[in-house]
Structures are given as structure tokens and as C-alpha cells.
């Protein structure tokens, strides 16, 4: 049986009301507003309805409504204000304080019972709907997480294919993502002109996995050559930036931010601020800051990794080489972020 609370300072009023309401509900009684607040705190949403008198000593009906509102309960438990005071002002106040309905004494029992039932059902339905919505939202969020995780897996797998062709472990892609994220967090903190949301940084880091996807189109002879490339071979190798964009264009489903990040990173992760990079010879701020971050991450990780044509450098050594400009020109801003992120990058190395 559903539980309801009757609040009235006049004992006879309480008992007469309880006599009627007990036909349909288990009835609790409070003799004033203070006792009512205590019972409401104790039973919470186990109460299906509160029938509340307006004029009472200590705490009046509006005080009880205010207490319930402060505890977020007026949206959970319906309150019928049952009063002998029929003024527009008190009615308006009661509704403003969150009463679900107002009735006047002397009450008509059938009307009161029916209104009570309607309100109890309405609020139960609302609670059930909110609960369903919450469950579905959680399910949707979980599905979204699983989908994002599956996407990330596929992107990483695709990005790592080239590494496996180069007889490498696939850790390069993971490290480039982490280094890119770390550098971008410093960019975001110290250069508000490039302001990025956390979601954008995640998207860019994920897109960084595909920076070398165009190498799939480079022949094994060139990709795995354990020697210095000829000018012609190097020219073909540089084309991996363009091939990557062609691959992405073929699989493009829609123009969204993620596609643009992937495309820009594939194409411009070998550009240099002095215009001596490739394939487009962009200069300075023409190169998006996130492409500069990936470029630096790729360069740093390439230095600290063993390749078929070279041994691995120590992280400190690689760091110094980049700072001395031995690996091409980077912007002052990205180098400053690289410097600030040094300790974290050494941990990743």
C-alpha cells in the first residue's frame, strides 16, 4: 500500500482526513511543519503524496514546501495543499513553492481521493520515465564509449600497418599519439589563441595515428631500404604525405572535424616553418599548430627509435638535437611547449 503523509496542526482535522485517505493509502501523520520535515527527510520518495495544511505553528505549509524544494523533493513527491484559507496570494505562493495542487476545506472525499490518485500516478509515471531515460542514457553512453574504443582500435590498426611492413613493433603510432597529446595540452595552456577543447585534443591525437598511412603506397624497396635513399627514391618517399590524403579521400564519408584533422596531419606533418618542408612548402602559421605538434612528435619518436637505417638515440640527445635545429625548423611556440613538456616526454620515451 502506498504511503502518504497528512500534515495538520488540528488533531480532529488530521484524524478526519486520515479516516478518508486510509481507504486507499497507508497514512502517516504530522502535527506541525517541523514534524513533517523530519518525516519527509526520513521517508523521502517512499512517500507517494503529502497533504499539507497551510496555517500551522512553528513551520507553516509554505515552509514545508520550501524545505522539500531545497531537498529536490517537490519534483519527486506530489503535495496537495489543503487549506481553509482561500486567497489568490496564498494560492500563487503555494504553486510557486512547488505545490502540485490546492484544495479547500471542507473537502469532498471523492474529489480528494481522485485527485490524490491522479497525482500519485502522474508522479510515479514521471519517476519511472526519468529512470528509464537515465538507464537509456547510460546505455547510450556505454555504446558510444564502445564505439569510440572500436574506432580508435581500427584507426590505430590502420596506422600501424605501415610499421609492421617496416618490421617495427607498432609502438611508434601509440607514442606519437601520446607525445602529440602532451604537447597540445601545453599549447592549450600557454597559447590561448589556439584554444582547443579536451575533445578536440583527443580527436587530433587519434588522427595522429594515421600520419604515415600514405606509406602503404610506398614500395618495400624504398620503405625498408637499409641505406640512404637516392634523390629519386627520397622524392617518392616524400609522396607518402600526398598518398595518405588520397587514401583518406577515397574513404571519406562526411566532411567533419575528424576527417579534416586526419587529412591535414597526413599532408602537412613534414612541413617546416621555414618553408623547407614538403609537400606544399608551407611557412610559419600556414602550418596548423596541431600539424606542427604531430610533426615534432613524429620527429622526436623517430630519433629515439631504432630503424633499419639507424640506431636509437637517447631521449636527452634527441631532445637536444631538435632544440639545436638539427631536425629542421620548428616554430618558437611549439618548441617552447616541447621544452616545457620535456620531463613528461622523457617518461613516455
Amino acid at each position: 500500500m502506498q504511503k502518504i503523509l497528512i500534515v495538520d496542526d488540528v488533531e480532529m482535522d488530521r484524524e478526519m482526513l486520515a479516516e478518508v485517505m486510509s481507504r486507499q493509502y497507508e497514512v502517516l501523520q504530522a502535527k506541525d511543519g517541523e514534524e513533517a520535515c523530519g518525516l519527509i527527510d526520513c521517508f523521502g520518495t517512499r512517500l507517494s503524496l503529502v497533504i499539507l495544511d497551510l496555517l500551522m505553528p512553528k513551520k507553516n505549509g509554505l515552509d514545508v514546501l520550501k524545505h522539500m524544494e531545497e531537498h529536490g523533493l517537490t519534483a519527486q513527491i506530489p503535495v496537495i495543499l489543503l487549506t481553509g484559507e482561500a486567497t489568490v496570494e496564498s494560492d500563487v505562493s503555494a504553486y510557486e513553492y512547488g505545490a502540485a495542487d490546492i484544495m479547500y476545506k471542507p473537502f469532498h472525499s471523492k474529489v480528494l481521493l481522485r485527485r490524490a490518485q491522479n497525482l500519485v500516478e502522474l508522479f510515479e509515471h514521471r519517476r519511472a520515465t526519468e529512470h528509464d531515460l537515465q538507464v537509456r542514457t547510460e546505455e547510450l553512453q556505454n555504446s558510444k564509449k564502445m564505439l569510440a574504443s572500436a574506432n580508435e582500435f581500427l584507426i590505430d590498426a590502420l596506422g600501424s600497418v605501415v610499421e609492421f611492413r617496416s618490421l617495427e613493433s607498432g609502438e611508434h603510432v601509440q607514442r606519437v599519439k601520446k607525445i602529440t597529446r602532451t604537447i597540445l595540452e601545453y599549447v592549450n595552456r600557454y597559447y590561448p589563441e589556439y584554444s582547443m577543447t579536451g575533445e578536440e585534443i583527443e580527436m587530433i591525437s587519434s588522427a595522429a595515428a594515421l600520419h604515415d598511412v600514405g606509406k602503404i603506397a610506398i614500395s618495400d624497396d624504398i620503405l625498408n631500404a637499409p641505406r640512404r635513399l637516392t634523390a629519386q627514391e627520397f622524392s617518392e618517399m616524400k609522396q607518402h604525405t600526398v598518398y595518405g590524403c588520397e587514401i583518406l579521400n577515397r574513404f571519406k564519408l562526411q566532411e567533419n572535424n575528424f576527417f579534416h584533422y586526419c587529412y591535414d596531419i597526413c599532408r602537412w606533418h613534414h612541413e617546416k616553418v621555414d618553408g623547407r618542408g614538403y609537400p606544399d612548402g608551407l611557412k610559419g602559421d600556414e602550418i596548423p599548430i596541431y600539424c606542427q605538434a604531430v610533426s615534432l612528435a613524429d620527429c622526436f619518436d623517430a630519433l629515439i627509435s631504432k630503424r633499419v637505417y639507424k640506431e636509437a638515440f637517447q631521449a636527452k640527445e634527441a631532445y637536444d638535437m631538435i632544440c639545436r635545429g638539427e631536425c629542421g625548423a620548428f616554430s618558437d611556440k611549439i618548441l617552447r611547449c616541447f621544452t616545457m613538456a620535456k620531463d613528461e616526454l622523457f617518461m613516455l620515451a
Binding site: V10, L55, K105, P106, F107
Partner: peptide, 20 residues
């Protein structure tokens, strides 16, 4: 005021309309 307010409510609920 308080006591007559209470009494009119009780008498009204008991159908004692002239007294209420």
C-alpha cells in the same frame, strides 16, 4: 483568529454549516 479558523474547518468537515 487561530482558534476560530481551526473550528470553522472542523465544523465544515462535519457538515455543521451554520456553526462553521
Amino acid at each position: 483568529f487561530t482558534t476560530t479558523h481551526n473550528l470553522k474547518g472542523v465544523c465544515g468537515t462535519l457538515g455543521l454549516k451554520p456553526l462553521a
